[in-house]
């Protein structure tokens, strides 16, 4: 009877300790690199668009309003490929740098706090990804860029409870420019470059100077 209470106490202590501790192995450097990858991706995407505008049989004005945008399947595929490559590069860099930081600080990388972080980050993100596929299904490609920014922002805000609180501001900034981007359809690529590129670099350098360079 008594020892059951003590056992409960111990598990309560363990639970509180792991739930209240935050994942701190996220490296600022991975934010900077993710931003750079995003900018490189955006550069390739723009080149792809321009080459279609020049070589395509019909003249192509991707700055025009949403109704007249008709992305061909090729360019959507190409964008898709670029996006996947950027995401893969950013994520693997993030994981590698986190592993290194965790080793240096002598903490376990895969614990309760990082599990919470990953799960809570991916709930809005996967929702957003599926939602964007639906947008493409209905030929609303112009809304994909704002939607990705908004959902990514929500993912960051959601994840911020389980890691450095500063991620929250990165998320809020992305939500805001995502909403702004809905009013400038056709300029999606530039908003992407700003949100995923410039914001990540800014955020990463801030984090790097605040937590890593000690």
């Amino acid at each position: 009877m008594e020892s059951k209470k003590y056992l409960d106490d111990i598990s309560h202590i363990k639970d509180m300790m792991s739930r209240s501790s935050r994942f701190i192995s996220l490296s600022g450097l991975s934010g900077i690199l993710a931003g750079i990858y995003a900018l490189i991706g955006a550069w390739f995407a723009e080149k792809a668009m321009k080459s279609i505008a020049i070589n395509g049989s019909r003249s192509y004005d991707y700055f025009s309003d949403a109704n007249s945008i008709e992305f061909g399947n090729d360019i959507i595929f190409e964008f898709f490929l670029i996006a996947i490559l950027v995401i893969l590069a950013a994520m693997s860099t993030g994981v590698i740098l986190s592993v290194r930081k965790a080793k240096r600080k002598n903490v376990k990388l895969w614990d309760t706090s990082s599990k919470y972080l990953v799960v809570n980050f991916f709930i809005p993100l996967l929702t957003g990804g599926l939602f964007c596929l639906v947008l493409l299904q209905y030929n609303l490609a112009g809304l994909v860029a704002p939607a990705t920014l908004i959902f990514y922002g929500l993912a960051c805000v959601n994840a911020s409870k389980y890691t450095f609180g500063d991620v929250r501001y990165l998320g809020l900034a992305n939500i805001i420019i995502g909403l702004v981007a809905t009013q400038f359809i056709g300029y999606g690529l530039y908003f992407w470059a700003l949100g995923f590129g410039v914001f990540h670099i800014l955020y990463g350098s801030l984090m790097y100077s605040k937590y890593d360079r000690k």
Binding site: D9, H12, I13, K14, M16, M17, R19, S20, S21
Partner: peptide
């Protein structure tokens, strides 16, 4: 007491915690 145990556990692994954070966690 559960709440005291909780307060101590949280403060063992965090440099500090404010009232709101403790309230939410506990």
């Amino acid at each position: 007491h559960r709440i005291r145990l909780g307060i101590m556990s949280i403060l063992m692994v965090n440099e500090y915690a404010d009232f709101k954070m403790l309230k939410e966690l506990l």
